[in-house]
């Protein structure tokens, strides 16, 4: 299972980075979100053990899932939504200012 998860994380990273490198800035935003999903996937897979029941204190003898990575992912999901919205508004500003959403035409950051 570890190998499967590693390959999936790697593949999603590859796809995310490829998308981030697109000229179309909307695709770059999508790429960013795929990257953040990949990171969440990594966090999820890094739990110390696999559980059978959810992480509740209920006296069950079955193993519960690892709560720590879940808590990390929980906040990460919400924050990445905020970050994505911010990036989207930047994309919109680029579109207003440059009248284009092509990363190669956005060149005013030059020296």
């Amino acid at each position: 299972m570890d190998l499967l998860f590693s390959i999936a994380v790697g593949a999603m990273f590859a796809i995310g980075i490829f998308q981030v490198l697109r000229r179309n800035v909307i695709r770059s935003v999508i790429g960013l979100f795929i990257l953040s999903n990949a990171v969440n996937l990594f966090l999820l897979s890094s739990g110390a053990y696999q559980g059978v029941v959810a992480a509740y204190v209920n006296g069950s003898s079955l193993t519960a899932s690892d709560a720590l990575p879940q808590a990390l992912i929980l906040t990460a999901i919400v924050i990445s939504m905020g970050g994505l919205a911010l990036v989207l508004s930047l994309v919109y500003i680029l579109s207003v200012r440059y009248k284009i959403s092509d990363a190669d035409k956005i060149k005013k950051l030059r020296y």
Binding site: D2, L3, F5, S6, I7, V9, G10, A11, F13, A14, I15, I17, A38, F42, S45, S46
Partner: peptide, 12 residues
Amino acid sequence: GIVMTAVTYQAL
């Protein structure tokens, strides 16, 4: 992707 796969595998 390959680097990340290796890193993840190593970590896991």
